[in-house]
Simulated assay, not measured.
Amino acid sequence: MKISNVGAVLLCVTGMVIVGSSVSISQLILDYPALTGQAARYALAAVVLFAIARRWPRFGLESAPSTGTPTRRPADRAPGPTGGWPTRREWLILTVLAAIGLAAFNAFILIALPHAEPALVGTFIGAAPLGLALLGPLLRGGRPTVRLIGAAGVVVAGTALVQGTGRADAIGVLASLGALAGEIAFSLLAAAVLPRLGPVRVAAYSCALAVPLLLVAALVGGEPARWRAPTGVETATYAYLAALMTVVAFVAWFTGLRRLGVERAGILVGVMPVATLVTAAVQAGRPPTLGSSLGVLVVVLGLTLGLSARPHGERPARPEPAADQSEPEPAVVSTARTASA
Rank of each mutant, 00 (worst) to 15 (best):
T279L: 11
G306Y: 05
A252N: 03
G261I: 01
V262N: 09
G306C: 10
A309R: 04
G313W: 03
M272L: 13
M272T: 13
P273Q: 12
V296S: 09
R310M: 08
E263I: 00
V298L: 01
T289H: 10
L307T: 00
L277W: 12
A284N: 12
L303Q: 10
T304Q: 12
L277V: 13
L301D: 00
G266E: 02
L307M: 14
S292M: 12
G270R: 03
V282Y: 14
M272I: 02
V269K: 12
P273L: 02
Q283F: 08
G261L: 09
G266K: 02
I267D: 04
A275K: 08
V262I: 10
P311Q: 12
A281F: 00
L290G: 07
M272E: 15
R258C: 01
V282L: 15
V262C: 08
Q283T: 14
T289C: 10
T304R: 14
L303A: 10
G256Q: 03
T289N: 07
V274S: 09
H312T: 15
Q283M: 10
S293V: 15
R310V: 12
G306W: 02
L268H: 03
Q283A: 13
W253I: 12
V299S: 07
W253F: 04
R259W: 04
I267V: 11
A309S: 13
